[in-house]
Design a protein around this nucleic acid. Structure first.
Length: 563
RNA sequence: AGGGGUGUCGCCAAGCGGUAAGGCAACGGGUUUUGAUCCCGUCAUUCGUAGGUUCAAAUCCUGCCACCCCUGCCA
């Protein structure tokens, strides 16, 4: 659907602080052109929080006619897999962004990174430490207590160099030694207390295979990768604020002629969802959901399958803005963004989710009429579709009551209602089974009400329907929020706050014929119900499966609750 | 001997010394063959708080308070 950014008619975007910085850097001539990057670690699926970062990085590059790289931060072979990388690429593309040139990998720079490490050693700014991980932690000190120097801190750089080369050659085992930057064990910033920059890991890397058994740490890798790629603005989340001095220290102390500016912004938090990789993983592993792309998951692939459009996700990211404040966005913002997109772009169709049979007693037995209905009430250019009218139709159980107050505008015994895009009918009789469940409603119709109101009156309600004989059976999955609490991430026991009704599967739904050969991932508005999307995987071979993306706004529910 | 950040409406968020934008939500009303959409209207005398500077302060200064992040050979 609408996968292309529609920025054309948003006259002025809010100037958040990062745009202001970029503006200023361009105006002052600090940069002729800007370069950003989106640097995921290929160890999980992208989620809505990443979408914010993707939109920021790619968006700002696009806006200022710069470029944005896609770079996999693959420095920890123990956690990373090629399969994740493939999924990430697909998600970024689907969101509507194009990266600059080839995909980059931190692992592409392993040779250069190694060279810079040797340079630091030669300058006396890094040393090989043989303290155990436990000892390193102990020597690091605490927030209140300064750390103390490792006994190996002042060994000759020639010795460190030799040891570092032997580390690389595979002479030592994991954890036996590591390379540390020599900065300041007494720094109030713990990241500056001689951070480890290389560690030994006898582990096959998904791209470099067994070439390396030592791998650089994030703090050493990220800034150099940025510099090597000529990144001008390195945008990251708040928790890296304390790492910025280290980012700058590394670039200031190696022979490199580029020094990107790291700028931090706050992550996205969405009410009723979690975005921690660990928690998302738990949901999948413990089968609380049906995989990473379950439509209830806040992953990009999950939201896609649910029916959210890329444009809607981008729109939400624009609306929430960029600041350094800790924030929690209400679901309403995302929902508003999808509704706005889908209202404009989704074809309308009628589907009866919980069918009850209506027999139109005065309608000729074998007559089948073909009626024409617009695909969109406001957009004529979206064309029309054919509806089949017959003696027996289905309506939704919720649209009929034997008796009701005047607020209820649907079918009531003895009263009239409009069948949308068809005739006005009147309910005359109700047939029930032994348990008292309604099995049939007998109605009469007014043949002179097609496209016009009955003489002298106007039915107050309109309900949707499908022909009992000329309609299709469908499975409809009603999704709702995965968690009942606003901030599930803060919950001690995550599964306890799961919403038991996050998925309701209706297998007896009926839908109009026009949808017969629907392609997967087609979005519709089921009139009076909500926006639905044919399932990307399960809707095939004539089997119709739809996922509810979001309901329509429901002011009736509010009225009803007040009654 | 701690350090780094952040506080403007229920939720986001502009504002950058000249007298509180906007969006979402909410609440009224109108149009409507979707209780949808659309339209119209209401919604911060006050910016964490206490002082100070100034003709003028959300914006500058000082003190206090609250919240978030940091002690992986994770990113």
């Amino acid at each position: 659907m609408s996968n292309v950014a529609d920025n054309s008619k948003s006259p002025e975007k809010p100037k958040h602080f990062i745009r202001q910085i970029v503006d200023k850097d361009l105006a002052s001539g600090k940069h002729q052109t800007i370069a950003t990057r989106f640097p995921p670690e290929p160890n999980g699926y992208l989620h809505v929080g990443h979408a914010k970062s993707i939109c920021l990085n790619f968006g700002i590059a696009e806006e200022f006619k710069g470029q944005c790289n896609l770079r996999f931060d693959d420095t920890n072979p123990a956690k990373e897999e090629a399969a994740y990388a493939t999924a990430i690429e697909e998600d970024v593309h689907w969101l509507g962004f194009e990266w600059n040139g080839n995909i980059r990998h931190a692992s592409d720079y392993f040779d250069q990174l190694y060279g810079f490490a040797e340079e630091l050693i030669e300058k006396g700014l890094a040393y090989v430490d043989e303290l155990t991980p436990e000892k390193i932690r102990e020597y690091r000190g605490t927030f209140e207590v300064p750390g103390k120097n490792s006994p190996h801190r002042d060994r000759p750089s020639s010795e460190s160099l030799d040891l570092f080369r032997r580390m690389k050659a595979g002479e030592f085992s994991d954890g036996q030694m590591c390379l540390r930057a020599k900065i300041d064990m007494a720094s109030p910033n713990i990241n500056m207390r001689d951070p480890v920059i290389y560690r030994i890991k006898h582990q096959t890397h998904h791209r470099t295979g067994d070439k390396w058994c030592i791998y650089p740490m994030y703090d050493f890798t990220h800034c150099i990768s940025d510099a090597l790629e000529g990144i001008t603005h390195s945008l990251c989340t708040l928790e890296f604020e304390d790492h910025r001095p280290l980012y700058d220290w590394v670039l200031d102390n190696i022979s490199i002629d580029c020094h990107p500016q790291q700028i931090e912004f706050s992550r996205l938090n969405l009410e009723h969802t979690v975005t921690s990789k660990r928690k998302l993983n738990l949901l999948v592993t413990d089968k609380h959901v049906d995989g990473w792309d379950d439509p209830r998951m806040p992953t990009i692939s999950g939201m896609r399958r649910r029916g959210f459009t890329a444009a809607a996700i981008r729109d939400m990211c624009e609306r929430i803005g960029i600041t350094k404040k800790v924030n929690t966005t209400e679901m309403g913002v995302l929902e508003n963004s999808v509704r706005e997109d889908l209202d404009k772009n989704a074809k309308r169709v009628m589907a009866v989710l919980d069918p009850v049979k209506v027999v139109i007693t005065n309608y000729p037995e074998d007559k089948v009429e073909q009626l024409t209905a617009p695909n969109h009430p406001q957009k004529e250019e979206m064309g029309v579709r054919t509806l089949f009218m017959s003696k027996e139709v289905f309506i939704d159980r919720a649209d009929f009551r034997e008796e009701a107050n005047k607020k209820y505008k649907r079918l009531v015994l003895g009263k009239e209602v409009r069948l949308r895009n068809s005739y006005v009918i009147q309910a005359n009789d109700v047939i029930k089974d032994q348990q008292g469940n309604i099995t049939e409603i007998h109605c009469s119709y007014d043949p002179d009400t097609l496209g016009k109101n009955p003489e002298g009156r106007k039915p107050k309600g309109v309900i949707h329907w499908v022909s009992a004989t000329h309609s299709l059976s469908a499975t409809v999955r009603l999704y709702d929020r995965l968690f009942n609490v606003p901030n599930p991430g803060a919950e001690e026991n995550l599964p306890e706050s799961l919403n038991p009704e996050s998925l309701i599967t209706l297998s007896n739904a009926r839908i109009e014929m026009s949808v017969k050969d629907v392609e997967p991932e087609t979005r519709f508005q089921f009139e009076r119900e909500g926006y639905f999307c044919s399932d990307r995987y399960d809707c095939k071979d004539g089997e119709l499966v739809f996922n509810r993306t979001v309901t329509l706004r429901d002011s009736w529910a509010k009225i009803e609750n007040k009654l």
